[in-house]
Amino acid sequence: MSQEFVAIGHIDDIPVRGARCVRTAHGKIAVFRTATDEVFAIDDHCPHKGGPLSDGIVHGNAVTCPLHNWVFSLESGEAQGADEGRVRTFAIRNVDGALSISLASLTEAAE
């Protein structure tokens, strides 16, 4: 399947060290902006008990889940430390602040 990118908004819509979510027909995606203005997109659903990761605290290239403090890498989607689990990651593009994501993995999984 092709890597088609869908516009989701501007980087300034997201607070630095913060996140917003994007609602899709297949669930929510959390879009993060780090202290260094890198952007990442992952599933907004913690594999532990479904915590909304976009509500977590963002630090470095990681986020801490608001429900029970699991920490996930925004790059790989892997749980850090002793916890095991991962969330899906989505390709994201930043062209002069205009953000778009590829939903390939989302739709693939949904199929």
Partner: peptide
């Protein structure tokens, strides 16, 4: 405001494309 709303709502059309 940003805290309470999604930044984008993608309808099934877009997502399925």
């Amino acid at each position: 405001k940003h805290e309470f709303n999604p930044m984008a709502v993608l309808d099934s059309q877009q997502a399925a494309e």
